[in-house]
Design a binder for these strands. Structure first.
Ligand code: ZN
Ligand code: ZN
Ligand code: ZN
Ligand code: ZN
Lengths: 150, 150
DNA sequence: TGTCAAATTAAAATCATTTTAAATTAAAAC
DNA sequence: GTTTTAATTTAAAATGATTTTAATTTGACA
């Protein structure tokens, strides 16, 4: 945990940004909820528990900043809100998601899976891929069982 | 064109919805701008040219309805607006996108590309894939040339 | 023709996000 | 160590996209 904060601090400094207490509190919340897919509002409410004076606008600005630095990725599952997802340690690319259309659960896939597809796109479309967003919509393991039994 | 309208009309009827003049005008706009990625507002302005009395709320409701029927797919490129993309004729899945981070252009990929990845996900994660969203972010052909020359 | 449900309109409401202006903080300059 | 300065934060207001509401219209069909 602490070493990841240190790392992010360095990343900020390298672009001459500071790791202010508000920013640190925000990053800590993200680290403590790495599995979740929090909206700005979610993050705000959680940060408020440790730093009650923080404003929602600051959370938005911090998330935007972290997003520029590629510390987090901003994603959108189609409900009206943006969600902010910490990049896995050392990950080059954004990870993928499995969204269950039955129960709404979101599972993560850290494996890249797209290496071949990306070479194909570079070769056949002449498009130089820098990053990707991949989400599968379908039925999760749990919900398949329920459907079978009912 | 007409036969696609007919098809959509039937799809609506099969769920006991009607193809009202407003809905038809909206569908026509979508068909005439199949290559574009129009926002609700964009669609509204274009529909207004043929049916000036239409309201923005109706356009939203129509797009939502078409989205439920899988006639269009709702997509989000990270700017604050939803865009509505007609499904290609006979397509089982949503098509993919190449978004250029330099010039903002959006190119479409109709080839599926994900067959293998999807079997892998079904096999290794036990997730039954129904649909997907795949967007690549990178540099388009045009912008690569510019970069090389400058 | 009269009835009823579905659909539409225009306006207001809501919700997420951004902007603003004033106040605070903290590093840099003196 | 005080002053200066730029960056940051706050709280409130503004914005922009989307949804809801209530009143009206439309059109099938009894
Ligand atoms: Zn599920
Ligand atoms: Zn994730
Ligand atoms: Zn480009
Ligand atoms: Zn498209």
């Amino acid at each position: 945990m602490e070493h990841r904060i240190e790392k992010i601090k360095k990343q900020l400094h390298s672009q001459s940004y500071k790791l202010t207490p508000q920013r640190e509190a925000t990053v800590r919340v993200l680290l403590e909820h790495e599995e979740d897919h929090l909206s700005a509002e979610d993050v705000y409410l959680l940060v408020k528990e440790k730093a009650p004076e923080i404003g929602l606008a600051t959370v938005y600005r911090t998330l935007e900043l972290l997003s520029e630095l590629k510390v987090v990725d901003k994603i959108n599952f189609g409900d009206g809100v943006s969600r902010y997802d910490l990049r896995k340690e050392g990950a080059e690319h954004f990870h993928h998601h499995l969204v269950c259309v039955e129960c709404g659960s979101v599972e993560e896939i850290e494996e890249d899976l797209l290496t071949d597809v990306e070479s194909q796109v570079e070769r056949d479309w002449g498009f130089q891929v820098k990053d990707h967003r991949l989400t599968f919509h379908g039925i999760c393991k749990k919900c398949q069982v329920v459907t079978v039994n009912s």
